[in-house]
Each structure stands twice: as structure tokens, then as C-alpha cells.
Nucleic acid binder design. Structure first.
Lengths: 211, 211
DNA sequence: TGGGAAAATCTTGTATACAAAAATCTTGAC
DNA sequence: GTCAAGATTTTTGTATACAAGATTTTCCCA
């Protein structure tokens, strides 16, 4: 529970890169002893959100731009794999569910409801992972998806990105429905890879604005 | 350090599925207090080798056959991805290194040196991960590779498997050298997928022998 | 004799105390 | 005034004590 709260704090940017997570201070903050804090910190380290330097403490570690791009590329490849497998394994009902999610996405765009859009978008991707028909792969995909969540949301703010994303979703469903595995893989891979590129773009423009 | 030892014990089969890892007993065994044992157990849980049930303890959790097959399939897909990326990104020197590793593998087969074969085989795969040119993907590949290690070794015992595996390795290098990304991906995927199938075969025959 | 409730025991989870290592501060010499 | 060595403080890592929940045992009654 404490680990989740700390994770939230890292994601929401309350901690910045290189900050030391002081056990005693956190213990006071959460009104517990150091022991549960240490367990929470170990979880953060295990999930890659922090690094532990022996006898020095644990430091939060925000991924740099290059690492983020690597993570987006990996996510794109994994989604591609899920798409290729799903093309062979997905059921008719599941395809209908994907259509439903997409319809709700379109509604959300019309209503200018970014949160709603994001929620249904997430459902869409989770369904693809699920219907790859490989529970282990699904878990790995979910893990990485979750890790990239705060960064993925940012690029959705770009003008016209939501509509573009929707079109890509529909191409994915079309390929899956046709059972065209390689096309499904390629479309999904591109759909995620472009998120990484858009994110990169966003960061570059932000950096330029800061100067 | 204790976590590594425990991991070893799990891999070498000193613990079987569902065993409870008694903190007090382990503490006595390692001559330390419960605190470091608890930290080690948390690591095992984080790496998926054990599950923790609150107020009940942590239990070791060997993956069942279906999960293992899922893991092999995932590994095959990830290696395929590494191969596809590496086909575009690998250097001439690295290709030469792959050849060297393969040559050593052949020698090891001639000398009937299973350990040596396995060591060079591992180097081969690690190099492919490395030259996919994506540090994050590399780490993920290494993680899964490591997790599957004890099971991968088993299938190498099958008669003729080492020679077959070697031929596949050479096909991989040929595709990489030609820069044929899709072929490299397919060959590598097949190379790992067949390991899963062989492993399945082995388990089935072992089960039949037990009856 | 079987079933169930209560007590005893065991085990996890948390707090705290202590040891060792790292970081910081102080003091002295040049 | 600056640098370095030693002392002090801070901080992590480990041991131990205690609390709360889970399990087992025991005992009573039908």
C-alpha cells in the first residue's frame, strides 16, 4: 500500500530524478516505522522506479529521454507481437468488444472528454494483450504499459492526435478481423511507435520553450 | 546475496511447488535474523519465483507446463524482435564475434562438452540482445532468458538437439549478415520456439515414463 | 465417537534498539 | 586561507522484542 502511494508520488512528479528517499523522513510522513518503508522502497527498486546503492540509500530514477524512447520501442514491438498472435486467436465476440471500445472512444472525442478517451483506449489495448492468448505475455505487456502510462498520456494532448489514434485503432481491428497477422502486427507496432515519436516531439518542443 | 542463494535453491529443485519458505527456519539456516531473510523473500516474490499471501507467508511457485510454454513462446517472440532490430543495427565486428561463438559451439559439440556448449550458446544469444540496439529491450530479454535457463538446459540433452541448434544459429548469422530483418526474426523465433516444443516433448515422455 | 468452540501455539508484520559504514563538521598545521 | 586528518553525526543494515492474525490442539458436549 505504501509502495503504491510512493509510486504515485513518483509518477505525479513529486520526486525528481536523483532524489534520495529518506527512510526516516518517509517513516514520519506515513506514521509508521522504518521497516514497512524499507519494504516499500525495495518494491520500487524491483519495479525499476528507483535504484539502491548499498550503504547509501535508494534514489529515485526517472528514465532519461533515450531510455524512454527505448521503452516505447519495446512496447511497440510487444504490441506488434500481441497483434500478430491475436490475429490467429481472437474470437468474434472479442472483436465486437474492440468495436465497442472504439465507438466509446469516438464518443469521448466528440465530447472532448480526454479522461474518457484514455480509459477506453486503455481497455482497447488491454483486450489485445488478453487475446494474444498468452497469459505470461499479457502480464509483461501490462507491466510495460503501466510503466509508460504517465508518458503516454502526455502525447495525447497534441492537437489532432486523438483522432489519428482512433483511425489507427480501426485499422488494427480491420486487420485482426481479416486474420491478417503480419498486417495487424505492423499496424499496432506503428501505432505505438508513433506515440514514442510524438512524445519525443513534445519533449523537444518543451525543451525549446524552456530556453 | 541471500536472495541469490535462495534463487539457486529454487532452480536446482531443492524446493518444490507450494512449499512455504519459513522465515525462522531460513534465518537459522543462514545464521542471520529474520530481517534480511524477509528482504530476500520479497525479491523472490518480485521476480515471480514465489507468491506472498498476506499473514500466511511466501510460497514458492514453480511454473506449470502451460505457463512454461507461454514463457517459451514469449521468449521466442522477443528474440525474434531482437533479431529483426539487430539485422539493421549490428556491426561487422559483432557478426564476426557471433561467428566465433558459433565456432566454439561446434568445438564443444565435437568434444562432447555440454557445459561449454551451453556457455557459448548463451554468449550467442546475449550478443543478439545487445546488438538489437535497445538497452531496455536487452534487459528484458536477459531477464526472461535467465528465468528460462533451467528449463532450456534440459532440452539440450535430447539426442541430436545440439547439432540442430547449431545449424539454426548459423542460419541466424546468415540472415543478420544479409541484413534480411524479417528472415532473421523468423529464424530466431523458430529457434527458440522449437526449444519450447522440445521441452514439451521431454516433459511428456518423462510423464509417460513415470506411469 | 464426532463436531465445534476456546485456548494455546505458531507465524507474520511492525516497532525499536544497536552496530557499522558513510557523510559532515571541526580543528590544526602549513 | 586552504587542505587534510580526526571526531561527530547521520544513515543504512541487522537483530530483537512485541502485537495481531492464523493455525492447531484440546476439551467439552451431544
Amino acid at each position: 500500500m505504501i509502495a503504491d502511494t510512493l509510486e504515485e508520488l513518483v509518477f505525479t512528479g513529486d520526486f525528481s530524478d536523483g532524489d534520495r528517499l529518506d527512510e526516516i523522513r518517509l517513516a514520519r510522513q506515513f506514521n509508521v516505522s522504518r521497516t514497512p518503508i524499507r519494504e516499500a522502497l525495495q518494491r520500487l527498486v524491483a519495479s525499476g522506479l528507483a535504484v539502491q546503492i548499498p550503504r547509501r540509500g535508494v534514489f529515485i530514477r526517472q528514465p532519461g529521454l533515450v531510455e524512454l524512447m527505448e521503452m516505447f520501442e519495446t512496447m511497440a514491438e510487444i504490441e506488434g507481437v500481441c497483434g500478430r498472435l491475436a490475429a490467429h486467436r481472437i474470437s468474434e465476440e472479442a472483436l465486437a468488444d474492440l468495436d465497442t471500445a472504439n465507438a466509446r472512444c469516438t464518443e469521448a472525442i466528440a465530447a472532448d472528454d480526454a479522461d474518457g478517451y484514455y480509459r477506453e483506449n486503455e481497455r482497447f489495448h488491454h483486450m489485445i494483450y488478453r487475446h494474444a492468448g498468452n497469459g505470461f505475455l499479457e502480464q509483461e505487456a501490462l507491466r510495460l504499459h503501466r510503466r509508460l502510462k504517465p508518458f503516454r498520456r502526455m502525447q495525447l494532448r497534441l492537437r489532432g492526435r486523438m483522432a489519428q489514434s482512433m483511425a489507427e485503432h480501426e485499422a488494427v481491428v480491420a486487420a485482426l478481423r481479416a486474420g491478417e497477422a503480419e498486417r495487424a502486427a505492423e499496424v499496432l507496432r506503428g501505432h505505438v511507435a508513433i506515440q514514442g515519436e510524438k512524445f519525443h516531439l513534445l519533449m523537444a518542443s518543451l525543451r525549446r520553450a524552456a530556453e
